[in-house]
Design a protein around this nucleic acid. Sequence first.
DNA 1: AGGTTGAAATGACCATTGGTCAGCTATATA
DNA 2: TATATAGCTGACCAATGGTCATTTCAACCT
Lengths: 222, 222
Amino acid sequence: MSSVVAINQRARSADQKALRRQAVLETAETYFLEVGYEAFSMSKLAKKTGLAKGTLYLYFQTREELFLTLYEQSLIRWSHVFFDGLSDSMTSKAYAQKLVSTASADGTFLPLLIRLEHMIEHNVAIPRLISSKQLFIKQVEAIAEATSISLSLSEAQAIEVVKTMGVLLIGASQGDQGPSLDHEELPEDVQDLIASFSSEPLFIKNAVRIIEGIRTEAVSNI
Amino acid sequence: MSSVVAINQRARSADQKALRRQAVLETAETYFLEVGYEAFSMSKLAKKTGLAKGTLYLYFQTREELFLTLYEQSLIRWSHVFFDGLSDSMTSKAYAQKLVSTASADGTFLPLLIRLEHMIEHNVAIPRLISSKQLFIKQVEAIAEATSISLSLSEAQAIEVVKTMGVLLIGASQGDQGPSLDHEELPEDVQDLIASFSSEPLFIKNAVRIIEGIRTEAVSNI
DNA sequence: AGGTTGAAATGACCATTGGTCAGCTATATA
DNA sequence: TATATAGCTGACCAATGGTCATTTCAACCT
């Protein structure tokens, strides 16, 4: 009854298979953090894991299903970190700040979130996709509950806030995903533009506007 | 001095080359609207244009530079349509409604905007990228000017609004980019989730919150 | 009119990709 | 120790984006 599967041993029990799958995911995440989404190749991942390419496809139906799994794990991981950073009666600014800083700190979460709908989901079997969406719903509900307490909002308002924060996070992150142009070859106007789309301040400013907007709507509905 | 270049004729003058380049772009856009970004292949585009693949690469450095050009043209085209739809003293809701409906109506603009930073820009030469960013700045300024009038905002506020609308548009569009799941195979909770991320109402609601937020900030700064 | 020349166009070719599957082999069981 | 099951393998496939030596066309110059 060994709980570790050496790379040249076969994973026979369900436990061992789960372990191997997780080991592949961990290698994949490290590799992903090195090269990013586009340059990520299944052949190279096979080499890195010490397995044959065909074996990877015993554990994941497609490259995208692997990414979907990585995304799910990063979502869960991030939401725990975010939870831990929340406290009662936060200002909307502090809340937004915590949200964006924890999300940015996880190198996997945002790059995969951004590619979820228009890349990853397009090459994943539908039942797998459904289970992923259901996990997402569960996470949104959990985050909304914590949000409701932190921002003193009703449950319905908190759900609205969380969904909207997701949308805003995707939009605001976009600005950090361009090619790295550390070089000084850029004209000043272009540098200013890029600076003005820096994701964190952009996110925080607008998150505050939206949260305050949602609060106000509730008051005016009384 | 012919202003049309038959497919089996050579484009020799600068004019003819520009014409041919534009003809390729038009075929490419039609093809893109049929199959989308991922399935778009340069070999197939070559067949559709009646040119050899190598010839395409005389007119565009990479697949992505072609997409960047298509994006630029769709940005210009959309902003004209948007201008035409604006009038003096609009409500922020009417403004947001016009913005999102015109953007969605252009089948090319949003799908390319969404992929700009994390896909397209990563395979385009830097000088080309700079010129594209400068075109973007120009468009933002023009749209901001029209916005300033329509929403009765200062120029600075209008620029803030326009930039933020861009961010929100990208985030909100994401929800429409998933695989088409017309099939009834989806459980109810997942269907509800997808419905709640429908881009147009999501965009409008939050655009209003943000615009009103920007207005309020200005007042409280006096 | 016929030759020269430079540049536009070509398409076979290359490395690489995601994905498959017939065959191999490690291992639990009898 | 023999057998059967099933995990694993890697050569193979069709496709991709991109290249470049070669071909071909048309404008120019005798």
